[in-house]
Design a protein around this nucleic acid. Structure first.
Length: 647
DNA sequence: GTAGGGTTAG
């Protein structure tokens, strides 16, 4: 446990009032003159402003009467320098000089300790100050939220309420943020705070309402976010950006783009998008595989001179790759005059989703050689790349190098990658052994990776083991039940299929419906199996049916094992024909011009039948078709797929 | 004296 006693190491210096000052005597050529207190305070402050903290502290030890302002600057300087030891020295001195009950400085100290990453020290300052002004309360809320302890913020917030201390407009923004960071069961708490905001008449405050939009967004409560957003009579750029980000991050990319257009239309020149807004718009294009839209946005970014802002350019690299145009992504990457680790990670994962494992590996090595330290995400990306390309041994070596060469402790995410890598390559037992040897609890991601591999290789025994864990760890994730049912279906264990489907039903869960997006003529369309809104839907269904029949005459054999019903083959084939990606392919054939690549993105993994259907179609209709599923890209051309049927 | 939205992966 953390030793809070270390907070005020009084041994660091003797109490100032009993000191015999030496440095306060400045030697001139002829005599020694004492510097006045005002001058010394001024000098300490100047040193702080110049970033010379050590010298400032040195001078402080000889100053008998440091002022509040002097301590304020010293505290700020410690935070800037990220020096906890200097912070202790300053804090000790401040206490000895009798400022420990000064609420102004207590606020600053709490902020400082929060920025230095020490919750216990921030907390101790808070606990020891008796005059807790709203600034002091807000500081501890801010600090603990920043450090991720939302639960504690909410506990303290309740205490503040019961003490009769009224919150102010700042309090709400911190407390709402705390709801987000603490995670568990929190939409409910967030709602309570929301209700309080309304009861106390704070609904007119832009900051608070924007924070509310963001809070609901982070919980995935898109409708609640939208309700707050719509209720706001006045909105500024941050509000619009928060709502656009909400759609982009919560699988509603079309609405993100729509809202962006609405913002441009309705607000005119009053609200012009900045880099933050555009990052979300780029992400939405990426999710949709909306290449033309993305290019338009890129053009806008260049015209506005925002093309040197790293988050923007990094998002562009990813966007082009996810839209299927890897080369454009590479161009952006190559033209950048500065890059950070995120830029490299973006490029590595771009190669990963295109199945170009060796290129990803080369980029990773180039990055390391240039002295850029890989982050945990770099490893997730490069291991993912190995996984998609079947570079099993290379992946294993990388995994082993994490700790040895880069001092990065593999997290569950990395274990999930290595399990996926081995599992896909049908080294399932080896994967299971790695799980058994893990020091930490494997967690749903790892078991999920194993179950996914069992699905590919139809390993019923291991699948049962993995899903037992998964049902316990995440009982409401429908995907796990569906995967297990598919494995049973492939093994023709129909009673088991029924049992799993019943489980799903009992829990009131539903299979996530498949959805595809396709862009043509600079517009993006969404396509679902059941879609009354699409005026062409009947035509599309009919075309899929006709094409399928014609292709079967030429040798296409429907892969019926993904169908979870015990039906005869013909009926199964009918079920498969309703899959959204086949509809999207047909939609593309009708609506995209000849010679234009049909680009589709999908919210789930591509099923095997759709994969072979699309492969066949690329030759049959002589069209290039690109499909991006949840994991990676499939580039179909002339009857073959870029994934080499390994996905 | 304090506040709101964004980059890479899964």
């Amino acid at each position: 446990m953390f030793q809070i006693q270390t907070l005020q190491p009084t041994h660091l210096r003797a109490p100032s009032r009993h000191r015999i000052s030496t440095a306060s005597l400045v030697s001139t050529s002829t005599l020694t003159v004492p510097i006045s207190t005002a001058n010394k305070n001024h000098s300490i402050q100047t040193l702080c402003r110049k970033g010379k903290l050590k010298q400032a502290i040195q001078l402080l030890s000889d100053e008998d009467n440091p002022t509040q302002r002097t301590y304020e600057l010293l505290i700020q300087s410690c935070a800037q320098k990220q020096s906890l030891s200097d912070a202790f020295t300053v804090h000790t001195s401040l206490t000895e000089d009798g400022f420990d009950q000064d609420p102004f400085l207590a606020t600053k100290l709490i902020n400082m300790y929060a920025e230095l990453g020490s919750a216990p020290h921030a907390r101790q300052v808070f606990d020891e100050i008796t005059d807790r002004t709203i600034y002091v309360w807000n500081a501890i809320f801010r600090g603990l939220s920043l450090l991720g302890d939302g639960e504690e913020v909410l506990r303290l917030y309740r205490r503040m309420n019961s003490m009769g201390m009224p919150p102010d407009r700042f309090t709400y923004t911190y407390v709402l943020k705390a709801c987000v960071v603490s995670g568990s069961e929190l939409p409910l708490r967030g709602k309570e705070v929301h209700a309080q905001v309304l009861r106390r008449g704070y609904e007119g405050y832009l900051h608070i309402m924007t924070t509310l939009v963001d809070m609901y967004a982070k919980f995935g409560c898109v409708e609640s976010a939208r309700l707050v957003f719509s209720s706001m009579p006045a909105k500024n750029l941050v509000t619009w950006s928060a709502m656009i980000a909400c759609f982009a991050k919560n699988a509603r990319p079309l609405e993100a783009l729509e809202l962006f257009r609405e913002m441009m239309r309705e607000s005119g020149d009053d609200v012009l998008p900045n880099s933050v807004t555009l990052v979300s718009v780029i992400q939405a294009c990426a999710v949709l595989s909306a290449l033309e839209q993305g290019k338009l946005i890129h053009g806008y970014i260049v015209r506005k001179g925002l093309d040197s802002i790293l988050p923007v350019v990094n998002a562009l690299v990813t966007m082009y790759a996810r839209c299927g145009d890897l080369e454009l992504g590479e161009n952006v990457f190559n033209q950048m005059d500065k890059r950070d680790v995120v830029t490299w990670n973006s490029m590595i994962s771009s190669y990963a989703i295109h199945g170009l494992g060796s290129k990803a590996l080369a980029k990773f090595q180039e990055m390391v050689k240039l002295g850029v330290s890989p982050t945990p995400i770099s490893f997730i990306s490069v291991l993912g790349a190995c996984s998609h390309s079947g570079l099993v041994d290379e992946g294993r070596l990388l995994f082993d190098s994490m700790m040895r060469e880069h001092e990065i402790l593999p997290s569950v995410e990395h274990y999930a990658c290595i399990v996926d890598l081995l599992g896909r390559a049908n080294r399932l037992e080896e994967a299971a052994r790695i799980i058994a040897d893990m020091r930490d609890e494997p967690g749903p991601m790892v078991w999920g990776a194993l179950l996914g591999s069992c699905r590919i290789h139809c390993n019923v025994d291991l699948a049962e083991r993995a899903s037992r864990m998964l049902f316990e760890l995440e009982p409401t994730n429908a995907g796990n039940y569906v995967l297990l049912a598919e494995i049973y279906a492939e093994a023709k264990m129909w009673d088991e299929v029924k049992r799993v489907k019943k489980l799903l039903e009992e829990k009131g869960l539903q299979k996530v419906p498949g959805c595809c997006w396709i862009e043509t003529k600079k517009r993006v369309y969404s396509i679902r199996s059941v879609d009354e809104l699409n005026p062409q839907i009947e035509l599309i269904h009919a075309l899929v049916m006709k094409l399928s029949e014609e292709m079967m005459e030429q040798g296409y054999v429907p892969e019926t094992k993904a169908v979870l019903y015990e039906l005869d083959t013909e009926e199964k084939q009918r079920v498969l024909l309703g899959h959204s990606e086949k509809l999207a392919v047909a939609f593309g054939l009708i609506n995209c011009s000849r010679g234009e690549t049909i680009r589709i993105s999908k919210n789930l993994r591509l099923c095997e039948d759709c994969h072979s259907f699309t492969k066949f179609m690329s030759k049959f209709a002589d069209r290039e078709i690109m499909v991006r599923d949840i994991n990676r890209f499939h580039h179909f051309r002339d009857g073959k797929c870029s994934c080499g049927d390994y996905w």
